[in-house]
Deep mutational scan, measured.
Amino acid sequence: MKKYKITVYDEKTGEKHTIEIEMSEEELEELAKKLAEKHNVKVRIEKV
Score class of each variant (00 low, 15 high):
E30N: 12
T18V: 13
K38Q: 11
N40I: 05
E30A: 11
V48F: 02
T7G: 00
E20I: 14
K38N: 14
E11G: 06
I45D: 00
L35T: 02
K34T: 11
V48D: 04
A36G: 10
E30V: 13
E46G: 03
E37Q: 14
I19C: 14
V48C: 07
K34M: 12
E37H: 09
L35K: 01
I21D: 01
K3N: 04
K16M: 14
H39E: 12
Y9N: 01
K33T: 07
L28P: 01
V8M: 08
I19Q: 04
E29K: 13
H17V: 08
E27W: 05
K38E: 08
K42D: 05
E22H: 08
K12C: 13
H39W: 03
E37W: 03
Y4N: 00
R44W: 13
E37C: 11
T13H: 03
E25Q: 10
I45R: 03
K34N: 08
E15F: 13
K2P: 03
V48L: 07
K47P: 13
K2T: 11
K33G: 06
I19T: 05
E37P: 03
E11Y: 14
K3Q: 05
T7S: 05
E37T: 13
M1F: 12
T7Q: 03
M1V: 09
V43Y: 02
Y4W: 12
K5G: 00
K47E: 15
A36D: 04
H39M: 08
E30T: 13
L35Y: 09
K42F: 03
E46A: 05
E27M: 10
E15G: 05
E30P: 04
A32E: 08
K5P: 00
I6N: 00
E26Y: 12
E25N: 06
H17G: 03
E15I: 13
G14Y: 03
K5A: 04
A32Y: 14
I6F: 03
K3E: 01
E29L: 13
K33V: 08
H17Q: 08
K16E: 14
I6G: 00
E22G: 02
E22Q: 06
I21V: 13
I6H: 00
D10M: 04
V41A: 07
E27F: 06
S24G: 09
E25S: 07
Y9W: 15
E11S: 08
E22D: 06
V48H: 05
K2W: 15
N40Y: 05
V41R: 07
L31C: 09
E29Q: 13
R44S: 14
T7C: 07
K47G: 09
M23V: 13
H39L: 10
H17P: 00
I19K: 02
K2C: 12
Y4I: 01
I6Y: 02
R44G: 04
V8K: 00
V41K: 07
E46W: 01
K16D: 05
K42Y: 03
I21R: 05
L31Y: 15
T13L: 03
M23Q: 02
T13D: 02
H39T: 12
A36Q: 10
D10P: 00
K33H: 11
E20P: 01
T13S: 06
I6W: 01
V48K: 05
Y9Q: 04
V43F: 03
T18S: 07
K33Y: 04
E25K: 06
K34H: 15
G14S: 03
I45E: 01
S24K: 08
Y9L: 07
I21Q: 04
K12S: 11
K33A: 09
K3I: 06
K12E: 10
D10I: 05
T18R: 03
K38I: 11
L35M: 07
K3M: 09
K3L: 09
A32T: 12
E37I: 08
S24L: 13
I19A: 03
E37M: 13
S24H: 13
E25F: 09
E27G: 12
S24N: 11
E22N: 06
A36I: 09
K33C: 12
K38W: 08
E25G: 06
K5D: 00
T13A: 03
E20G: 01
S24A: 07
K42A: 07
E26H: 12
V43C: 04
K5N: 03
S24W: 11
K42E: 08
K5V: 07
V43R: 00
I19E: 04
I6C: 03
L31D: 00
L31W: 14
K3Y: 08
K5E: 01
I21K: 05
T18A: 04
I45T: 02
T13I: 02
H17L: 10
L35G: 01
K42P: 04
V48Q: 05
E15Y: 14
L31V: 07
G14V: 00
E25W: 10
S24F: 12
K5F: 06
E30C: 07
K38S: 10
A36K: 11
V41W: 14
E27T: 09
Y4M: 01
Y4L: 01
K12L: 14
I19W: 15
I19P: 00
E29Y: 15
I45G: 01
K16F: 14
I45W: 05
L28Y: 08
I21F: 06
E26F: 10
Y9A: 01
E30I: 10
K38G: 09
E37L: 11
E15P: 00
H39Y: 05
H39V: 11
D10E: 03
E30F: 13
N40C: 10
M1N: 07
A36P: 02
E11T: 15
E30M: 13
K38A: 09
K38P: 06
H17C: 14
T18Y: 09
E46C: 13
E30K: 12
K47M: 15
E26Q: 10
M1G: 06
E20T: 11
L31A: 03
G14Q: 04
K16S: 15
L28F: 09
H17I: 12
I6T: 00
E25H: 08
V41S: 08
E20C: 11
K33L: 08
K5M: 07
A32F: 14
M23F: 05
V43E: 01
G14C: 07
E37K: 15
E30G: 08
E27I: 05
K12P: 02
V41D: 05
E27L: 08
I6V: 07
K3P: 01
K2E: 07
T7Y: 10
L31G: 00
I21H: 02
E11V: 13
K16G: 08
E29I: 12
M1I: 09
E20H: 10
E26K: 09
N40L: 07
E27R: 07
K47W: 09
H39G: 15
H17M: 12
M23R: 01
K5S: 04
M1S: 08
Y9F: 08
E22T: 09
Y9T: 07
V48P: 04
K16A: 12
K33W: 04
V43T: 03
S24C: 12
M1L: 13
M23N: 01
N40R: 07
K12F: 10
I21A: 07
K2A: 14
K38T: 08
